[in-house]
Amino acid sequence: MKIIYDLPKSLKKVPAHYCPGCGHGIVHRLVAQVVDELNLGKKIIGVAPVGCAVLAYDYWNFDVSEAAHGRALAVATGIKRCLPDNFVFTYQGDGDLASIGLAETIHTANRGENITCVFINNACYGMTGGQMAPTTLLGQKTATTPKGRESEKKEGWPLQISDIIAGLKGVSFVARSSVSNPARVKQTYGYIKQAFGKQIDKKGFSLVEVLSPCPTIWQKTPYKAGRWVEEKMSKVFPLGIIKK
């Protein structure tokens, strides 16, 4: 028998701690797959966020540094400037990237640092119990918007951070996809590979936003959470390449 769908070598063979149906597991696998495919195993350095994915180094088989909440891109900047021939990426959530780390995000992108950012948008703070994130949809109920997020109550609108980043000159590639069904997973894989490719070609900052289900916090079955990404989230955050 010949294996036709095999797990990447950069992924450890251990069970992950994530909830059933969580998108992190899929994106971890996709990143590992791209690392394998582009043969980056010996040169790759990841920066893990604060959030559910802080333990990403338990699943990836390469060098990883933690970073304080929101500071992943600053840490990545330090790493990349010292080791320009290594391959550096951050893996960050919406709270990390678009709220507490907004300054680091914008300025790292604006400096045109040759770094790739994999941005997981699940429209909430998953690890802390489901509070409102900058990307929470209007009307979406969270622990801190019990009646649903309302812009009239000055709770703001879902922050289109990827579009803002795409507008900066130092940025080479921005795309948004999801992991809500097998076709989208494939698309996400393609985007991550393209983004990593930009770094190899030294083109500057690249970012892939992944709309990712959080069935536990959303209180939906994994399947329905995926449907919600397609039917609701993707309307607010349209999928596709934003900048190339």
Binding site: S65, A67, R71, A74, V75, R81, C82, E104, H107
Partner: peptide, 23 residues
């Protein structure tokens, strides 16, 4: 490497990154 960081927070975390790779 010299970087004028966007804040003291960013500066110390850049130092964290540089130190993490042994510099």
């Amino acid at each position: 490497v010299f970087i004028q960081a966007e804040s003291e927070l960013a500066a110390i975390n850049m130092v964290y990154g540089a130190s993490a790779v042994g510099r």
